[in-house]
Design a protein around this nucleic acid. Structure first.
Length: 475
DNA sequence: CTAGGGTTAG
């Protein structure tokens, strides 16, 4: 996938370069001229408001093909955009192909005064990515380049690179970015940013750092988003020294830290249980008159909960309205978790009951947190009742919920139920992970069912799961 | 049109 993309891109690029690279500015000025509205130009009046469903669009399309003078690409673009908005991407593609085949050949495109319609292509490509049709999106992009249908602009490039990143093809996007750098289409900093984000999330922090250096070499200035993405990546993997250097670099390059930068730092410290350091960051924020926002408050509530400073967590939540912030469901989930971890399930439950009164909706995390709290306190029946409530409220259990439930069942030695639940989750398309099996193996070992435990253990590798430290700890 | 938040295993 990765290599074929590159090869095809190169082909498209080679064809492209001959025809376009010398004249981009000329094209763009033509574009501006023809976009200007002239009161004298006889434009066919096309009523796009009649489009309510796909069939309307297709009908209008047929009409447009017979109109004289021919509707411009702007009109076709509007039509295609309407179809794309209805998420009918394949219809849009077919209409486009038909328009292309019935219409003037590409070489006549310019003679007739139709300038390349980059917006149409970008919209289509974006639609295909949104529809998870990555291959089709790539194909269209390559076709665009190979047939020289239009000059891609910054948005086109961003759309393709972002689409690839979000579809999990980070390295393809990375390579594509490198190829664009060598052309006349210089990627905008946004395109770099989306690659940074994906590289960091895919644990390729060093590659991201290299890209940062390369970007600076190429004369493209990283912006605050670049730095924040990079900072997040470094913090996530405990690269404190690099994170510190990065911040120094930001200051050197006169990129001022914003509320998100501080938020990332607070969150990183909180996750490590370094509450004191997080408070220092908050102190700096106060000095700069940068107020706390909900996200940062939530990170702090979580951090305080982690280290058992539940009173501070509570105070912070209570202080939020006074700061002009409305606690959200995440604020509540974090504090509920804090109380549960402290063994104060009663208090957690009281808070849990407050949620609907505050006009907030429970979600899967809130339920799972409370469920875990009840089970940990040995309140098994209440936990099961809560799970039933959750299902009644149409909140879909996820992997963590199932693992929590399994843990509860194992603690109660209800192994038959546990195994049937294992099948239920598989039926629901929720794939068990190593934690699922650790829970079962641990429960079985504790109950003296070593045979069953060992059988599960021996089956791990064939399920594609790696035993970890905790797996062995249970024996 | 891209950056930060909550849940599971003695």
């Amino acid at each position: 996938m990765r290599f074929s993309t590159m090869a095809l891109f190169r082909r498209g690029f080679a064809a492209k370069k001959r025809y376009f690279s010398s004249l981009p500015f000329l094209y763009s000025s033509f574009h501006n001229l023809s976009q200007q509205k002239s009161p004298f130009s006889p434009k066919p009046r096309i009523d796009f408001s009649c489009i309510h469903e796909v069939d309307d669009a297709v009908f209008l399309f047929r009409q447009m093909l017979t109109m004289r003078p021919k509707p411009t690409h702007v009109d076709f673009n509007r039509l295609l955009t309407a179809v794309v908005k209805m998420k009918q991407y394949s219809v849009a593609l077919n209409l486009f192909d038909e328009m292309h085949q019935l219409g003037t050949p590409v070489s006549d495109f310019f003679k007739r005064g139709y300038e390349p319609n980059v917006t149409t292509f970008t919209t289509l490509i974006k639609g295909l990515f949104l529809d998870d049709k990555v291959i089709e999106a790539e194909k269209l992009f390559k076709k665009l380049l190979a047939l020289r249908l239009c000059e891609p602009n910054e948005v086109t490039i961003l759309t393709v690179i972002n689409g690839l990143c979000k579809a999990g093809h980070t390295l393809t996007a990375y390579d594509l970015l490198g190829l664009f750098e060598k052309t006349t289409w210089k990627p905008h900093v946004n395109s770099y940013n989306t690659v940074f984000d994906s590289l960091c999330k895919d644990r390729m922090v060093d590659e991201a750092l290299q890209l940062l250096a390369k970007m600076v070499d190429n004369g493209i200035s990283p912006d605050i988003v670049t730095y924040n993405s990079m900072l997040q990546g470094l913090c996530n993997f405990g690269r404190w020294k690099d994170a510190k250097d990065l911040i120094t670099g930001m200051v050197d390059h006169k990129v001022s830290l914003n509320v998100i930068t501080f938020g990332i730092l607070v969150d990183a410290f909180c996750k490590e249980g370094m509450v004191k350091e997080a408070e220092d960051v908050v102190e700096i924020m106060m000095q700069r008159n940068a107020p706390l926002n909900t996200v940062t408050c939530n990170a702090l509530i979580d951090g305080y909960s982690l280290v058992g400073q539940i009173d501070k967590a509570r105070k912070l939540l209570d202080s939020m309205p006074g700061r002009g912030l409305k606690p959200c469901i995440i604020s509540y989930s974090s504090l509920i978790n804090g109380y549960c971890k402290k063994g104060k399930v009663e208090e957690a439950w009281r808070l849990f009951l407050e949620v609907p009164q505050k006009g907030l909706d429970y979600n899967v995390v809130t339920f799972t947190t409370m469920l875990h709290g009840l089970f940990s306190a040995g309140r098994f029946a209440e936990g099961l009742k809560l799970f039933k409530d959750m299902q009644a409220q149409q909140v879909i259990p996820n992997l963590v919920t199932y693992n929590t439930l399994l843990n509860g069942l194992c603690m109660n030695k209800q192994f038959a139920d546990a195994f049937s639940l294992l099948h239920v989750m598989e039926d629901q398309g929720v794939n068990p992970n190593i934690i699922t099996y650790n829970v079962l193996i641990h429960g079985l070992c504790k109950a003296g069912k070593l045979e069953t435990a060992r059988n599960l253990f021996n089956g791990l590798l064939s399920k594609g799961l790696q035993p970890n430290v905790q797996t062995y700890n249970h024996y």
